[in-house]
Amino acid sequence: MAHTETTIRYTADVVVTTTDGYVLLIERGFAPFKGQWALPGGHVDPGETSREAAARELAEETGVHAAPQELDQIGAFDRPDRDPRGRYVTVAYHLTVLPGTAAEAGDDAAHAQWWPLNALPQLAFDHADILDAAAATAT
């Protein structure tokens, strides 16, 4: 069997929840999944850890600032078909904040909004699976 090279892209995502049962989502401003809701996140830049990228992307897309060490790792998500653009591997993190934490969309997010965990919209990519994993690690 011939081996074919595949470019693997490295990303980080953040599940931000409040102590009263809300999660912070962004509406994607660009394809893929433009107009759909997703977790804040993005590419890991050269010289950056996934945890550092998660904190940076969270601040850029939502205005919520956290030190990288405040983010707890949920796990890695690497299903080959998780992103229509190609092979993406993400490391997901969790952050708990107090109710009333302000969030404002920035960077490539069209909107940032708190959603009740029991009434979520359809999520882009495999972000519903990441939320499920976050809930499982919190119990």
Rank of each mutant, 00 (worst) to 15 (best):
P68D: 15
A102P: 10
V91F: 04
F77D: 11
A66P: 02
F77G: 11
H111E: 07
D81T: 12
A138T: 12
V44P: 03
D20K: 06
L25Q: 07
A134R: 11
T4N: 11
R85F: 00
L95M: 06
V16W: 03
E27V: 06
V23A: 03
A66K: 10
L98F: 06
A2F: 07
G47I: 12
R9Q: 14
Y22E: 11
A119T: 08
L98V: 14
T101S: 12
R85W: 07
A109R: 04
L24P: 05
T62F: 01
D132Q: 15
L98M: 11
A53L: 05
G41A: 06
Q69H: 13
A66E: 09
Q113E: 15
A110S: 09
T137Q: 15
P80F: 02
R79V: 06
V89N: 14
T11D: 06
A38W: 05
D20P: 08
I26D: 01
H3P: 00
D81G: 11
M1C: 15
E61I: 00
E104T: 14
Q113D: 13
P84A: 09
E70K: 14
L24Y: 06
W115C: 07
V14Y: 01
V64A: 02
A109F: 00
G42C: 11
T17R: 05
V89I: 13
L24H: 12
Y88H: 15
A67W: 08
H43I: 09
E48W: 02
A124Y: 08
L120A: 08
E52G: 15
I8K: 15
A112Y: 03
L39E: 12
E60W: 01
D78I: 01
D72A: 13
Q36C: 08
A103L: 03
T90K: 11
E5L: 13
A53M: 08
W114M: 10
Y22H: 15
T4E: 15
D20W: 00
G35Q: 12
N118L: 12
I74Q: 12
L39K: 05
H127Y: 09
G75I: 10
H3W: 09
T62E: 01
I26A: 05
H65M: 14
A66I: 13
T139W: 05
E57V: 01
P84R: 04
A109P: 01
